[in-house]
Amino acid sequence: MAEIRLENLSKEYVNRRQRRRSRQEPNQRPGDRVLVLDRIDLEFKEGEMVCILGPSGCGKSTLLRIIAGFDRPTGGRVFIGGKEVAGPRSDSIFVFQYSGLLPWMTVAENVGLGLRHLKDSARKEDKIREYIEMVELEGFESYYPHQLSGGMQRRAELARALAVNPSLLIMDEPFSGLDFLTHMKMREEVVNMHEFLRKTTLVVTHDIDDALIMGDRIVVLSGRPATVKLQQTLDFPRPRDFERSPELSRLRSEIFLMLGVPYAV
C-alpha cells in the first residue's frame, strides 16, 4: 500500500546566489540552472526503514521534500501506493530537522493536530494520551515546546507524527542538534518504534553510524547533482554493534571512503 517509487526524478533550480556556494563550483553564476537531483530511480518497500546518506548539500533534503509533496520535481515522478504525489498530505508526515512543533500549542495540542477529525473528544483524549505515553512524555501534556529539552521536543514531534497513523514517516536529520547521549537514546527509540509499528520510514542523515545501525537498507547519494551511488540491504540482526559484526564494520569503512573520508576511525 505504502510502496514508494521514484521514477527518473530530477530537480533543477535557478541559482539566485550572488556568491558561489562552494569551491567545487567556481563557475557557478547567478541565473544559471543548477541540477540538484539527477534522474533518481528508487523504490521503498512497505514497512521498510531506509536511511539516505550523502555529502552535505547534495540534495538529500530536497529529495525528502519532494517525496513529502512540499516541493515539485522538475522531471520524473513520485508514486506512493500507486498514486502520484501532487502535494503535501497527512498520509506522509514529515518530521522536521529542527523542531516543527507549533510553539503556541502545548504538547497535547500538538499531538492532537493529526486527530482533529475525531469528533468524539473522549476518544481523542485517549489517543493523545496513548501516543504521549508511547514516547514517554506523560506529565508533560500541558507544557509548551520551549519548556521541553531538545530530546523531549523530538519525541513529542514523533508522537504527533505517529498519532496520524501515516503510511509514511519522513525524517530529516532527526537527531541533529542533540547532545551525544540524547542522540543515542533517540536513535534507539526510533529503531524500537520501527520494530514495533513497521511503518515505512525514510531517514535522511549525514551520520554514517546512524544509517548503519538503523536502516533496513541504506542509499548513498553522490555529491551534486545527486545520483544513487550505492544501495545496500542491511541484513544484520538488531541490536547492531560494529565491534561484534566485522561485516558491518567493513561496510562502514567502505562508505566512509565513498564519502571522501579515507582514514575514518
Binding site: 497527512s90 514529515f94 507549533l102
Partner: peptide, 27 residues
C-alpha cells in the same frame, strides 16, 4: 516557513491556517 509546511502536512484549512497558525504566531 516550517510552520506553514506543518500546516500543509496536517491538512489545515484556510480558516485553521489563519486562526491556529498565523494569529497565534504573530501575537
Amino acid at each position: 516557513p516550517t510552520y506553514f509546511q506543518v500546516a500543509a502536512n496536517f491538512n489545515f484549512s484556510k480558516f485553521e491556517t489563519i486562526f491556529r497558525l498565523i494569529v497565534p504566531a504573530i501575537v
